[in-house]
Write a protein that binds this DNA or RNA. Structure first.
Lengths: 184, 184
DNA sequence: TTGCATACTTACTAGTAGGTAAGTATTTTG
DNA sequence: CAAAATACTTACCTACTAGTAAGTATGCAA
Protein backbone atom coordinates (compact mmCIF):
# COMPACT_ATOMS: atom_id res chain seq x y z
CA UNK A 1 0.00 0.00 0.00
CA UNK A 2 1.38 3.37 -1.01
CA UNK A 3 2.24 6.06 1.49
CA UNK A 4 -0.39 8.38 0.05
CA UNK A 5 -3.08 5.75 0.37
CA UNK A 6 -2.18 5.28 4.05
CA UNK A 7 -2.38 9.00 4.67
CA UNK A 8 -5.77 9.21 2.99
CA UNK A 9 -7.17 6.42 5.17
CA UNK A 10 -5.68 7.96 8.30
CA UNK A 11 -7.17 11.36 7.57
CA UNK A 12 -10.52 9.87 6.54
CA UNK A 13 -10.61 8.00 9.85
CA UNK A 14 -10.10 11.26 11.71
CA UNK A 15 -12.69 13.14 9.61
CA UNK A 16 -15.21 10.35 10.09
CA UNK A 17 -14.85 10.57 13.85
CA UNK A 18 -15.00 14.34 13.94
CA UNK A 19 -17.51 15.31 11.23
CA UNK A 20 -19.30 12.07 10.36
CA UNK A 21 -19.49 10.33 7.00
CA UNK A 22 -21.81 12.93 5.48
CA UNK A 23 -19.96 15.81 7.08
CA UNK A 24 -16.67 15.57 5.20
CA UNK A 25 -15.82 15.73 1.50
CA UNK A 26 -12.92 14.71 -0.74
CA UNK A 27 -11.72 18.30 -0.51
CA UNK A 28 -11.23 17.88 3.25
CA UNK A 29 -8.74 15.15 2.39
CA UNK A 30 -7.12 16.42 -0.80
CA UNK A 31 -6.32 19.93 0.49
CA UNK A 32 -4.37 18.98 3.64
CA UNK A 33 -2.46 16.29 1.74
CA UNK A 34 -1.79 18.67 -1.20
CA UNK A 35 -3.50 16.35 -3.65
CA UNK A 36 -6.23 16.75 -6.25
CA UNK A 37 -9.55 15.05 -5.57
CA UNK A 38 -8.92 12.74 -8.54
CA UNK A 39 -5.94 11.28 -6.67
CA UNK A 40 -8.31 10.06 -3.97
CA UNK A 41 -10.64 8.62 -6.58
CA UNK A 42 -7.63 6.81 -8.02
CA UNK A 43 -7.14 4.95 -4.72
CA UNK A 44 -10.82 4.80 -3.78
CA UNK A 45 -13.20 4.98 -6.77
CA UNK A 46 -16.19 5.84 -4.56
CA UNK A 47 -16.53 7.42 -1.13
CA UNK A 48 -18.02 4.15 0.13
CA UNK A 49 -14.79 2.36 -0.84
CA UNK A 50 -12.89 4.75 1.38
CA UNK A 51 -15.38 4.16 4.17
CA UNK A 52 -14.97 0.40 3.90
CA UNK A 53 -11.19 0.73 4.05
CA UNK A 54 -11.34 2.86 7.20
CA UNK A 55 -13.51 0.24 8.91
CA UNK A 56 -11.23 -2.59 7.76
CA UNK A 57 -8.30 -0.66 9.18
CA UNK A 58 -10.10 -0.33 12.52
CA UNK A 59 -11.01 -4.02 12.49
CA UNK A 60 -7.34 -4.92 12.04
CA UNK A 61 -6.22 -2.47 14.73
CA UNK A 62 -8.74 -3.83 17.22
CA UNK A 63 -7.67 -7.42 16.52
CA UNK A 64 -4.04 -6.45 17.14
CA UNK A 65 -4.78 -4.58 20.35
CA UNK A 66 -6.88 -7.32 21.91
CA UNK A 67 -4.26 -9.91 20.98
CA UNK A 68 -1.58 -7.87 22.74
CA UNK A 69 -3.77 -7.65 25.85
CA UNK A 70 -4.72 -11.31 26.01
CA UNK A 71 -2.23 -12.38 28.66
CA UNK A 72 -3.37 -9.64 31.07
CA UNK A 73 -5.99 -10.20 33.79
CA UNK A 74 -9.47 -9.38 32.46
CA UNK A 75 -9.95 -6.24 34.56
CA UNK A 76 -6.73 -4.84 33.14
CA UNK A 77 -7.78 -5.75 29.60
CA UNK A 78 -10.91 -3.71 30.21
CA UNK A 79 -8.81 -0.84 31.53
CA UNK A 80 -6.82 -0.99 28.29
CA UNK A 81 -10.01 -0.70 26.27
CA UNK A 82 -11.10 2.25 28.37
CA UNK A 83 -7.65 3.74 27.76
CA UNK A 84 -8.28 3.62 24.01
CA UNK A 85 -11.51 5.52 24.53
CA UNK A 86 -9.80 7.99 26.86
CA UNK A 87 -7.31 8.77 24.12
CA UNK A 88 -10.16 9.40 21.69
CA UNK A 89 -11.84 11.62 24.25
CA UNK A 90 -8.70 13.74 24.55
CA UNK A 91 -8.51 14.06 20.75
CA UNK A 92 -12.19 15.11 20.66
CA UNK A 93 -12.80 12.09 18.47
CA UNK A 94 -15.84 9.90 18.83
CA UNK A 95 -15.60 6.18 18.22
CA UNK A 96 -16.07 4.83 14.70
CA UNK A 97 -19.06 2.71 15.69
CA UNK A 98 -20.83 5.70 17.20
CA UNK A 99 -20.20 7.86 14.18
CA UNK A 100 -21.16 5.25 11.59
CA UNK A 101 -24.18 4.01 13.54
CA UNK A 102 -25.59 7.56 13.46
CA UNK A 103 -25.25 7.71 9.69
CA UNK A 104 -26.17 4.04 9.20
CA UNK A 105 -29.32 4.68 7.14
CA UNK A 106 -27.40 6.77 4.63
CA UNK A 107 -24.58 4.23 4.11
CA UNK A 108 -24.11 1.86 1.17
CA UNK A 109 -24.91 -1.84 1.68
CA UNK A 110 -21.19 -2.72 1.69
CA UNK A 111 -20.46 -0.17 4.40
CA UNK A 112 -23.42 -1.35 6.49
CA UNK A 113 -22.11 -4.91 6.46
CA UNK A 114 -18.70 -3.68 7.64
CA UNK A 115 -20.23 -1.59 10.42
CA UNK A 116 -22.19 -4.64 11.57
CA UNK A 117 -19.02 -6.70 11.54
CA UNK A 118 -17.23 -4.11 13.65
CA UNK A 119 -20.07 -4.07 16.17
CA UNK A 120 -20.17 -7.86 16.41
CA UNK A 121 -16.40 -8.14 16.84
CA UNK A 122 -16.25 -5.60 19.66
CA UNK A 123 -19.20 -7.22 21.43
CA UNK A 124 -17.78 -10.71 21.00
CA UNK A 125 -14.48 -9.69 22.53
CA UNK A 126 -16.12 -7.81 25.40
CA UNK A 127 -18.45 -10.72 26.13
CA UNK A 128 -15.53 -13.13 26.25
CA UNK A 129 -13.50 -10.81 28.45
CA UNK A 130 -16.39 -10.42 30.91
CA UNK A 131 -17.13 -14.15 31.01
CA UNK A 132 -13.51 -15.04 31.69
CA UNK A 133 -13.21 -12.18 34.17
CA UNK A 134 -16.20 -13.38 36.17
CA UNK A 135 -14.86 -16.93 36.13
CA UNK A 136 -11.49 -15.69 37.42
CA UNK A 137 -13.25 -13.53 40.05
CA UNK A 138 -11.60 -10.38 38.74
CA UNK A 139 -14.89 -8.95 37.52
CA UNK A 140 -18.32 -9.05 39.15
CA UNK A 141 -21.69 -8.45 37.53
CA UNK A 142 -25.21 -9.88 37.32
CA UNK A 143 -26.95 -11.32 34.28
CA UNK A 144 -25.61 -12.54 30.99
CA UNK A 145 -22.11 -11.50 29.95
CA UNK A 146 -23.43 -10.57 26.49
CA UNK A 147 -26.00 -8.19 28.01
CA UNK A 148 -23.34 -6.63 30.22
CA UNK A 149 -21.04 -6.28 27.20
CA UNK A 150 -23.79 -4.41 25.40
CA UNK A 151 -24.18 -2.02 28.33
CA UNK A 152 -20.48 -1.34 28.68
CA UNK A 153 -20.09 -0.78 24.96
CA UNK A 154 -22.98 1.67 24.85
CA UNK A 155 -21.66 3.46 27.94
CA UNK A 156 -18.28 3.97 26.31
CA UNK A 157 -19.69 4.88 22.92
CA UNK A 158 -22.02 7.56 24.18
CA UNK A 159 -19.54 8.79 26.76
CA UNK A 160 -17.51 10.14 23.84
CA UNK A 161 -20.60 11.66 22.25
CA UNK A 162 -21.67 13.36 25.46
CA UNK A 163 -18.13 14.46 26.31
CA UNK A 164 -18.06 16.49 23.14
CA UNK A 165 -21.29 18.20 24.15
CA UNK A 166 -20.87 18.60 27.92
CA UNK A 167 -17.12 18.32 28.43
CA UNK A 168 -14.53 15.61 29.14
CA UNK A 169 -15.57 15.11 32.77
CA UNK A 170 -18.48 13.08 31.37
CA UNK A 171 -16.03 10.45 30.16
CA UNK A 172 -14.25 10.41 33.50
CA UNK A 173 -17.46 9.95 35.47
CA UNK A 174 -18.66 7.12 33.27
CA UNK A 175 -15.39 5.23 32.96
CA UNK A 176 -14.70 5.47 36.70
CA UNK A 177 -18.20 4.34 37.71
CA UNK A 178 -18.05 1.57 35.12
CA UNK A 179 -14.92 0.00 36.61
CA UNK A 180 -16.20 0.50 40.17
CA UNK A 181 -19.38 -1.41 39.30
CA UNK A 182 -17.39 -4.30 37.85
CA UNK A 183 -14.81 -4.54 40.63
CA UNK A 184 -17.56 -4.47 43.25
CA UNK B 1 -47.55 28.83 14.21
CA UNK B 2 -48.87 27.83 10.80
CA UNK B 3 -49.80 24.28 9.91
CA UNK B 4 -47.07 24.10 7.27
CA UNK B 5 -44.44 25.25 9.74
CA UNK B 6 -45.50 22.50 12.14
CA UNK B 7 -45.25 19.90 9.40
CA UNK B 8 -41.78 21.11 8.43
CA UNK B 9 -40.53 20.83 12.01
CA UNK B 10 -42.12 17.41 12.43
CA UNK B 11 -40.54 16.07 9.25
CA UNK B 12 -37.18 17.69 10.04
CA UNK B 13 -37.26 16.00 13.44
CA UNK B 14 -37.78 12.64 11.75
CA UNK B 15 -35.08 13.26 9.13
CA UNK B 16 -32.63 14.38 11.81
CA UNK B 17 -33.15 11.15 13.72
CA UNK B 18 -32.92 8.97 10.63
CA UNK B 19 -30.29 10.62 8.42
CA UNK B 20 -28.52 13.09 10.70
CA UNK B 21 -28.24 16.86 10.29
CA UNK B 22 -25.81 16.62 7.38
CA UNK B 23 -27.66 13.71 5.79
CA UNK B 24 -30.87 15.49 4.81
CA UNK B 25 -31.56 18.48 2.58
CA UNK B 26 -34.38 20.98 2.06
CA UNK B 27 -35.53 18.81 -0.84
CA UNK B 28 -36.19 15.94 1.58
CA UNK B 29 -38.68 18.24 3.28
CA UNK B 30 -40.14 20.22 0.37
CA UNK B 31 -40.92 17.22 -1.85
CA UNK B 32 -43.01 15.16 0.60
CA UNK B 33 -44.90 18.28 1.70
CA UNK B 34 -45.38 19.45 -1.93
CA UNK B 35 -43.61 22.71 -1.29
CA UNK B 36 -40.77 24.59 -2.97
CA UNK B 37 -37.52 24.89 -1.07
CA UNK B 38 -38.08 28.66 -0.81
CA UNK B 39 -41.16 27.96 1.31
CA UNK B 40 -38.96 26.36 3.94
CA UNK B 41 -36.53 29.26 3.77
CA UNK B 42 -39.51 31.55 4.38
CA UNK B 43 -40.16 29.86 7.73
CA UNK B 44 -36.52 29.08 8.52
CA UNK B 45 -34.02 31.39 6.78
CA UNK B 46 -31.12 29.01 7.42
CA UNK B 47 -30.92 25.28 8.04
CA UNK B 48 -29.54 26.02 11.51
CA UNK B 49 -32.77 27.91 12.34
CA UNK B 50 -34.71 24.77 11.51
CA UNK B 51 -32.34 22.74 13.66
CA UNK B 52 -32.82 25.08 16.61
CA UNK B 53 -36.61 24.86 16.26
CA UNK B 54 -36.52 21.05 16.26
CA UNK B 55 -34.49 21.04 19.47
CA UNK B 56 -36.78 23.62 21.10
CA UNK B 57 -39.72 21.44 20.17
CA UNK B 58 -38.06 18.44 21.80
CA UNK B 59 -37.22 20.50 24.89
CA UNK B 60 -40.89 21.46 25.25
CA UNK B 61 -42.08 17.90 24.67
CA UNK B 62 -39.68 16.54 27.28
CA UNK B 63 -40.80 19.13 29.83
CA UNK B 64 -44.44 18.15 29.21
CA UNK B 65 -43.78 14.44 29.50
CA UNK B 66 -41.80 14.61 32.72
CA UNK B 67 -44.44 16.88 34.23
CA UNK B 68 -47.14 14.34 33.41
CA UNK B 69 -45.08 11.60 35.05
CA UNK B 70 -44.21 13.49 38.21
CA UNK B 71 -46.86 11.94 40.46
CA UNK B 72 -45.74 8.39 39.56
CA UNK B 73 -43.23 6.38 41.64
CA UNK B 74 -39.70 6.94 40.38
CA UNK B 75 -39.24 3.45 38.95
CA UNK B 76 -42.37 3.92 36.87
CA UNK B 77 -41.19 7.32 35.71
CA UNK B 78 -38.05 5.63 34.49
CA UNK B 79 -40.14 2.97 32.74
CA UNK B 80 -42.00 5.79 31.00
CA UNK B 81 -38.71 7.23 29.76
CA UNK B 82 -37.66 3.81 28.51
CA UNK B 83 -41.05 3.58 26.80
CA UNK B 84 -40.27 6.74 24.85
CA UNK B 85 -37.01 5.19 23.68
CA UNK B 86 -38.78 1.90 22.87
CA UNK B 87 -41.14 3.80 20.60
CA UNK B 88 -38.18 5.41 18.83
CA UNK B 89 -36.55 2.01 18.47
CA UNK B 90 -39.65 0.64 16.75
CA UNK B 91 -39.71 3.62 14.39
CA UNK B 92 -36.01 3.03 13.60
CA UNK B 93 -35.34 6.53 14.93
CA UNK B 94 -32.37 7.37 17.06
CA UNK B 95 -32.65 9.96 19.81
CA UNK B 96 -32.07 13.63 19.00
CA UNK B 97 -29.17 13.92 21.42
CA UNK B 98 -27.40 10.96 19.84
CA UNK B 99 -27.87 12.28 16.35
CA UNK B 100 -26.86 15.85 17.13
CA UNK B 101 -23.94 14.86 19.35
CA UNK B 102 -22.45 12.93 16.43
CA UNK B 103 -22.65 15.97 14.19
CA UNK B 104 -21.77 18.41 16.99
CA UNK B 105 -18.52 19.67 15.45
CA UNK B 106 -20.30 20.65 12.22
CA UNK B 107 -23.14 22.56 13.94
CA UNK B 108 -23.55 26.33 14.26
CA UNK B 109 -22.86 27.95 17.65
CA UNK B 110 -26.60 28.51 18.24
CA UNK B 111 -27.38 24.87 17.60
CA UNK B 112 -24.55 23.72 19.85
CA UNK B 113 -25.92 25.75 22.74
CA UNK B 114 -29.34 24.18 22.24
CA UNK B 115 -27.87 20.66 22.11
CA UNK B 116 -26.04 21.37 25.35
CA UNK B 117 -29.25 22.62 26.92
CA UNK B 118 -31.08 19.45 25.87
CA UNK B 119 -28.33 17.29 27.36
CA UNK B 120 -28.32 19.21 30.64
CA UNK B 121 -32.10 19.08 30.96
CA UNK B 122 -32.31 15.33 30.41
CA UNK B 123 -29.47 14.69 32.86
CA UNK B 124 -30.95 17.02 35.46
CA UNK B 125 -34.30 15.26 35.32
CA UNK B 126 -32.73 11.80 35.43
CA UNK B 127 -30.50 12.75 38.36
CA UNK B 128 -33.48 14.06 40.31
CA UNK B 129 -35.54 10.97 39.51
CA UNK B 130 -32.74 8.66 40.66
CA UNK B 131 -32.08 10.63 43.85
CA UNK B 132 -35.74 10.64 44.83
CA UNK B 133 -36.09 7.00 43.83
CA UNK B 134 -33.23 5.96 46.05
CA UNK B 135 -34.64 8.00 48.92
CA UNK B 136 -38.02 6.29 48.47
CA UNK B 137 -36.32 2.87 48.20
CA UNK B 138 -37.84 2.25 44.79
CA UNK B 139 -34.48 2.40 43.05
CA UNK B 140 -31.13 1.01 44.19
CA UNK B 141 -27.68 1.95 42.95
CA UNK B 142 -24.20 2.83 44.13
CA UNK B 143 -22.36 6.11 43.71
CA UNK B 144 -23.59 9.57 42.86
CA UNK B 145 -27.01 9.93 41.27
CA UNK B 146 -25.54 12.24 38.64
CA UNK B 147 -22.98 9.62 37.59
CA UNK B 148 -25.68 6.96 37.41
CA UNK B 149 -27.87 9.33 35.36
CA UNK B 150 -25.01 9.71 32.92
CA UNK B 151 -24.67 5.95 32.58
CA UNK B 152 -28.37 5.36 32.05
CA UNK B 153 -28.60 8.15 29.50
CA UNK B 154 -25.66 6.82 27.52
CA UNK B 155 -27.07 3.28 27.70
CA UNK B 156 -30.37 4.41 26.23
CA UNK B 157 -28.79 6.69 23.67
CA UNK B 158 -26.45 4.10 22.23
CA UNK B 159 -29.01 1.32 22.53
CA UNK B 160 -30.90 3.04 19.71
CA UNK B 161 -27.71 3.45 17.68
CA UNK B 162 -26.72 -0.19 18.10
CA UNK B 163 -30.28 -1.42 17.51
CA UNK B 164 -30.17 0.08 14.08
CA UNK B 165 -26.94 -1.78 13.35
CA UNK B 166 -27.51 -5.11 15.08
CA UNK B 167 -31.28 -5.31 15.45
CA UNK B 168 -33.96 -4.32 17.99
CA UNK B 169 -33.08 -7.10 20.46
CA UNK B 170 -30.17 -4.85 21.48
CA UNK B 171 -32.63 -2.33 22.90
CA UNK B 172 -34.56 -5.04 24.73
CA UNK B 173 -31.43 -6.50 26.32
CA UNK B 174 -30.20 -3.12 27.49
CA UNK B 175 -33.50 -1.73 28.77
CA UNK B 176 -34.32 -4.96 30.62
CA UNK B 177 -30.89 -5.24 32.25
CA UNK B 178 -30.99 -1.55 33.12
CA UNK B 179 -34.21 -1.83 35.12
CA UNK B 180 -33.06 -5.10 36.73
CA UNK B 181 -29.90 -3.39 37.97
CA UNK B 182 -31.88 -0.52 39.47
CA UNK B 183 -34.59 -2.65 41.13
CA UNK B 184 -31.95 -4.91 42.64
C1' DT C 1 15.02 0.77 -25.34
C1' DT C 2 10.70 -0.24 -25.48
C1' DG C 3 6.59 -1.13 -23.05
C1' DC C 4 3.83 -1.22 -19.29
C1' DA C 5 2.23 -0.38 -14.58
C1' DT C 6 1.92 3.04 -10.91
C1' DA C 7 0.59 7.32 -9.19
C1' DC C 8 -0.83 10.91 -10.01
C1' DT C 9 -2.74 15.97 -12.51
C1' DT C 10 -5.65 18.68 -15.55
C1' DA C 11 -9.89 19.69 -16.88
C1' DC C 12 -14.23 18.59 -16.88
C1' DT C 13 -19.34 17.00 -15.84
C1' DA C 14 -23.95 16.55 -13.92
C1' DG C 15 -26.31 17.02 -9.92
C1' DT C 16 -27.32 19.01 -5.54
C1' DA C 17 -26.52 21.98 -1.66
C1' DG C 18 -28.22 26.08 0.93
C1' DG C 19 -29.81 30.49 0.00
C1' DT C 20 -32.08 34.89 -2.24
C1' DA C 21 -34.85 38.50 -4.81
C1' DA C 22 -38.93 39.51 -6.74
C1' DG C 23 -43.51 38.48 -7.74
C1' DT C 24 -48.36 36.69 -6.44
C1' DA C 25 -52.47 35.02 -4.29
C1' DT C 26 -54.98 35.05 -0.01
C1' DT C 27 -56.32 36.66 4.27
C1' DT C 28 -56.54 40.12 7.84
C1' DT C 29 -57.09 44.67 9.54
C1' DG C 30 -57.98 49.64 9.89
C1' DC D 1 -62.80 49.12 0.36
C1' DA D 2 -57.80 49.85 0.60
C1' DA D 3 -53.54 48.78 2.82
C1' DA D 4 -50.76 45.58 4.75
C1' DA D 5 -49.28 41.33 6.51
C1' DT D 6 -49.01 36.26 5.56
C1' DA D 7 -47.70 32.39 3.01
C1' DC D 8 -46.14 31.06 -0.39
C1' DT D 9 -44.07 30.33 -5.92
C1' DT D 10 -40.96 31.32 -9.75
C1' DA D 11 -36.66 31.79 -11.14
C1' DC D 12 -32.36 32.21 -10.14
C1' DC D 13 -27.33 32.05 -8.00
C1' DT D 14 -23.01 30.48 -6.21
C1' DA D 15 -20.61 27.00 -4.18
C1' DC D 16 -19.69 22.50 -3.69
C1' DT D 17 -20.55 17.44 -4.24
C1' DA D 18 -18.91 12.87 -5.95
C1' DG D 19 -17.17 11.20 -9.91
C1' DT D 20 -14.74 10.66 -14.79
C1' DA D 21 -11.83 10.78 -19.04
C1' DA D 22 -7.69 11.80 -20.80
C1' DG D 23 -3.11 13.12 -20.31
C1' DT D 24 1.67 12.89 -17.95
C1' DA D 25 5.76 11.89 -15.27
C1' DT D 26 8.32 8.21 -13.10
C1' DG D 27 10.20 3.83 -12.38
C1' DC D 28 10.74 -0.91 -13.42
C1' DA D 29 11.00 -5.09 -16.18
C1' DA D 30 11.68 -7.79 -20.51
Amino acid sequence: MSETKDKIVELADHLLRVKGFNGFSYKDISDPLSLKNAAIHYHFPAKADLGVEVIDHELTKFAGQTKRWQSLPEDEQLEKLIGVFRKHCQDKNICLMGSLASDFETLSPEMRVKVQELGKRILAWLTGCLEQGRHNKRLHFKGEASDRALMIMTNLQSSLLMSRVLGPQVFNSISTQLMKDLKK
